[in-house]
Simulated scan of single mutants.
Amino acid sequence: MALESAFGGFVQSQRNIADDVYDGAFKGLVITSPDGERVYYDNRLPGWELVSYHWKHFWNKVIDWFINNL
């Protein structure tokens, strides 16, 4: 098993068209042992941190709406 980053088309952040190094973006990445019993890396937000993240995201959307519409 491996992680891979592939060319996703020309985007704003690409500086050099001939460059063959691409950024990888992973959501909810969890790296475990082959048997799945040991977790080496977990990118997910746990419990209250996840709730806090969603609340802040929601609140920022509300503020943005007021800025744009009032």
Rank of each mutant, 00 (worst) to 15 (best):
S33Y: 04
F66W: 05
E37H: 08
W65V: 05
L45K: 11
A18S: 12
F26N: 04
V51A: 13
L50M: 11
F7H: 11
P34S: 05
R38P: 00
G28F: 02
V62Q: 09
E49H: 09
D23M: 07
E4K: 10
D19Y: 06
W48K: 12
P34H: 01
G8S: 14
M1D: 09
V21A: 09
G8E: 13
W55R: 12
A25H: 14
E37R: 12
H57V: 02
D20G: 04
W65H: 14
W55N: 07
I17L: 11
K61T: 02
E37Q: 12
V30F: 01
N68W: 01
W48R: 10
F26A: 08
D23A: 12
A2V: 09
N43A: 15
V39N: 01
I31A: 04
L70A: 10
S52E: 13
S52D: 13
L50C: 04
I31G: 01
R38K: 15
D23L: 11
Q12I: 11
A2W: 05
E49N: 13
Q12Y: 12
V51P: 00
R44H: 03
S13V: 09
Y41R: 04
K56I: 11
V30G: 06
V11S: 11
E4C: 04
Y53V: 00
I17N: 06
F7S: 06
N16M: 06
A6D: 08
A6K: 14
G8F: 00
G24A: 10
N16T: 08
G28S: 12
E4Y: 10
Y40E: 03
W65Y: 15
S13H: 13
